[in-house]
Nucleic acid binder design. Structure first.
Lengths: 146, 146
DNA sequence: TATTGTTATACTCTATAACTATA
DNA sequence: TATAGTTATAGAGTATAACAATA
């Protein structure tokens, strides 16, 4: 069923289609690293330098604090993160990547950010044009699509 | 951290970013219709004309048959689908949308396919160019990104 | 009073394995 | 033998509500 309406709407609908088709790929890739999908997303949101307070992670993930407790439990159980008390606020626990966690996070990021063949097949000119247009949609700074 | 490497890879990485940002939107939208995320995706995959055999739905969703049993239970409990025996194979049950299910499916599709403001803001020329390039990535026929 | 993290509870999604009824 | 759907079981994600410690 072809998208009807403006070119803007049609483009969006194709993007939606791409999302949907990538879903199973994302799940399978996370699994390759022994991660459940939410765990992979959580790892991605952890600051590799400073670590990230649990409540901040909850906000990044758009979920409840109580949910993060369980995700952190499992990541900690797998030896990928560590709960560290905040020096400035004794209520806060900061999730910090272990060496193993940092390694897995980086490897997963490398794999997931590698362009699929269909993107690699674009001509340089098309890729450059695509990049420029996407930059308008997701402006480098600011709150794109938020 | 800016994407490094080819324009192809950079474009892909921006697409990934858009996916991630849409996640919570998708969940919230499904919830507006009283649907869990997987239920919304299942509804989308049901053929509104003929209905869809449960095992075919399992393949579309990339999950096990046993999983579809539960999803179908809940959709049926909500009065959105009906299990109907196949006339040609007595092992098969076809999931058919009820009137209410068809309505909710259509309304949800209308909402989710509406382009976000950032896409609507593209110039007609940019939108047309984007559309053309995306068509190369997801070719109208064939197995894009599969 | 408000926030952080936890616990308890409940529901959904998911897979595996065992089962049935068909084919 | 193989497939379609179910059931049982288990683990993961999610939210709400209640709680202790801290701000």
């Amino acid at each position: 069923m072809p998208a009807t309406g403006s070119a803007q709407a049609e483009a969006w609908q194709i993007m939606l289609d791409v999302f949907l088709r990538q879903r199973s790929r994302f799940v399978a890739l996370a699994q390759e690293f022994g991660l459940a999908p939410a765990q992979a997303i959580a790892l991605k949101h952890l600051d590799p330098e400073t670590g990230t307070p649990m409540s901040e992670l909850a906000r990044s993930l758009g979920c409840d604090n109580s949910n993060v407790t369980g995700i952190a439990d499992r990541l900690e159980g797998a030896g990928l993160v560590e709960r560290r008390p905040s020096p400035t606020d004794r209520r806060v626990k900061t999730l910090v990547l272990t060496a193993k966690g940092a390694e897995i996070r980086a490897a997963h990021q490398r794999r997931i950010t590698a362009a699929p063949p269909e993107f690699q097949a674009l001509s340089d000119a098309d890729a450059a044009a695509l990049l420029e247009i996407l930059h308008q949609v997701v402006s480098p700074r600011g709150d794109p699509l938020a």
